[in-house]
């Protein structure tokens, strides 16, 4: 009990609503550089809808040819939802999280390529698997090794939910 603080605002008792107004009100750095990638066709339409909302710096893509294995998945060809073509390696510059959206397991190879590229660069990975309960298993296993955080949900709004929570 020695060295107990004596001023109200110098001890834990200051955790009151009244003291809260003295908290520093600095603006919060707006964004995490989020890259959102649809791994399959149904995911693409979900991601396109999400992309229409207002985001601070998130960018949205579909894998140009999801599921097709042309032997070079190492640098996935991406198509931005605004129509421009680019490469995963370019898009990961300045990114701090890659969010993969999947509804089926045919994006497994792309997920692997994205996961590897992110691991190499120290970029966080997250996956949202949207499923109505059936057949999610294969999709989840396809993503599991490559997404540090995986959300399995029936609700496609969760994609936007996660992004806004991350201030994307």
């Amino acid at each position: 009990m020695q060295n107990r603080p004596i001023l109200l605002n110098s001890c834990a008792r200051a955790a009151t609503a009244a003291e809260a107004r003295f908290r520093i009100d600095a603006p919060i750095t707006p964004s995490r550089g989020a890259r959102v990638v649809a791994l399959d066709r149904r995911a693409e339409s979900i991601v396109r809808r999400v992309a229409e909302q207002r985001w601070s710096s998130a960018r949205f893509f579909v894998c140009e040819s999801p599921g097709s294995s042309n032997g070079d998945m190492a640098d996935v060809a991406l198509l931005s939802t605004d129509g421009s073509a680019s490469r995963l390696s370019t898009e990961l510059i300045g990114a701090d999280v890659a969010v993969m959206v999947a509804t089926a397991d045919d994006g497994a190879e792309a997920a692997c390529a994205i996961g590897d590229a992110c691991t190499l660069r120290g970029i966080m990975t997250a996956g949202v698997v949207i499923s109505d309960g059936f057949g999610a298993e294969a999709t989840v296993s396809a993503l599991r090794p490559h997404a540090r955080v995986l959300m399995v949900t029936r609700d496609e709004h969760d994609v936007a939910e996660v992004l806004s929570a991350l201030r994307a």
Binding site: A12, A15, T16, A17, E19, A20, R23, I28, V97, V99, M124, T125, A126, R148, V149, M151, T153, D155, H157, D158, E161, V162, A165, L166, R167
Partner: peptide
Amino acid sequence: ESMGPIVDRTKERLVPADSGIIKARQ
């Protein structure tokens, strides 16, 4: 308790590891 009686969630910086919380709130 140190967060204050009602934490101001407009100020937080969540990360993907907080997905459980994000989903629960939703």
